[in-house]
């Protein structure tokens, strides 16, 4: 029984981290149609932001939850103004530009921090279930991911900013004709996506070692989740994370982590074969 609970927590944790890692990309790629290959590096920069803050004596919770989204959000704003704004509607070009950006960021991070592993101390201790020890921080990550998902939903669904953002992404010309400053909306939405990526990097900083190249381990998962989810950004990410997270973890428990990764990829291939437009291409149509 205790073992089943532990397994349950791990499966939910896998789903929650998939959601957290993919949320920023769901906005930048799912809504704005910008293929951001630097998404992984945005996460890594979030991790480094948290590390720097901790080294400067900032409270660890502020360092992982507040500093990274602000820092990476601002970087996102600069990137949007400098590069991305010229490329809206040109998906292949966004891919090339953000790939270049990703290489640049990895290079800069390596120059500044070197390639030795950095990290942030774990702020929560473990707890006991029966004869088993579980990580308290994993439970926090689960709760926090759901909270973030809820907050982004409320922001996009019920606020004026969310309405403007959705309207602009759907039909920029019409929104502009109605007096919306679409340039600003694009910039703010991109920065929001970047901030969410930074937040994910910050939240995962205590569990994962950070090196300049560790973006590579997130980018694949994030794209698979967003693509598997399909058109509706939030519903898509959530449903795809549910599917991939549980398949991947179930396989990991049944066999080993290598087959876990394989099973996750296999599930993605099968899903895209059956539902080429992702889960929300057929189900939950019109959801956010």
């Amino acid at each position: 029984m205790a073992y089943a609970t532990i397994v349950g927590i791990e499966v939910v944790y896998a789903i929650a981290t998939l959601i957290l890692v993919s949320l920023g990309l769901a906005i930048i790629f799912g809504m704005m149609r910008v293929i951001n290959l630097a998404h992984g590096e945005f996460l890594v920069m979030g991790g480094y932001a948290a590390t720097i803050a901790v080294h400067h004596g900032v409270n660890v919770w502020i360092a992982i939850l507040i500093v990274p989204p602000i820092a990476v959000g601002l970087i996102g704003l600069v990137v949007e103004r400098a590069v991305i704004r010229f490329l809206y509607g040109r998906m292949v070009e966004t891919m090339l530009a953000s790939w270049g950006l990703s290489l640049l960021i990895v290079g800069l991070l390596t120059t500044i921090f070197g390639s030795s592993t950095e990290g942030v101390p774990m702020p929560l201790s473990g707890f006991t279930i029966g004869a088993y020890q579980a990580s308290g921080y994993n439970v926090f990550v689960i709760a926090f991911s759901l909270l973030t998902l809820g907050a982004v939903y409320v922001l996009l669904r019920f606020t004026r900013l969310g309405l403007l953002a959705r309207g602009t992404m759907q039909n920029a010309a019409m929104a502009a004709a109605l007096g919306v400053d679409t340039t600003k909306v694009y910039a703010v939405t991109f920065a929001l996506g970047a901030a969410l990526a930074g937040l994910a990097g910050g939240v995962l900083a205590p569990v994962a070692g950070i090196v300049p190249t560790s973006g590579g381990s997130y980018i694949g998962q994030a794209f698979i989740t967003v693509l598997g989810g399909g058109a509706a950004a939030l519903t898509g990410v959530t449903s795809a994370a549910l599917l991939f997270g549980s398949v991947g973890q179930a396989a990991t428990f049944a066999t080993n982590p290598v087959f876990g990764s394989v099973a996750l990829l296999l599930a993605a291939v099968v899903l895209i074969r059956i539902l080429p437009n992702g889960i929300t291409g057929r189900y939950f149509k019109g959801w956010l």
Binding site: V7, E10, Y132, Q133, S135, N138, S214, F253, P257
Partner: peptide, 30 residues
């Protein structure tokens, strides 16, 4: 590129060994 060792920790506890030996390299061991 594995960064989540949760399932492994559960399996280790289920097996209840006296010791664990790591032959890991790169950034993941941390």
């Amino acid at each position: 590129d594995v960064t989540n060792f949760g399932s492994t920790l559960a399996k280790i506890q289920a097996a209840a060994p006296d010791w664990v030996v790591t032959v890991l390299v790169g950034g993941t061991p941390l």
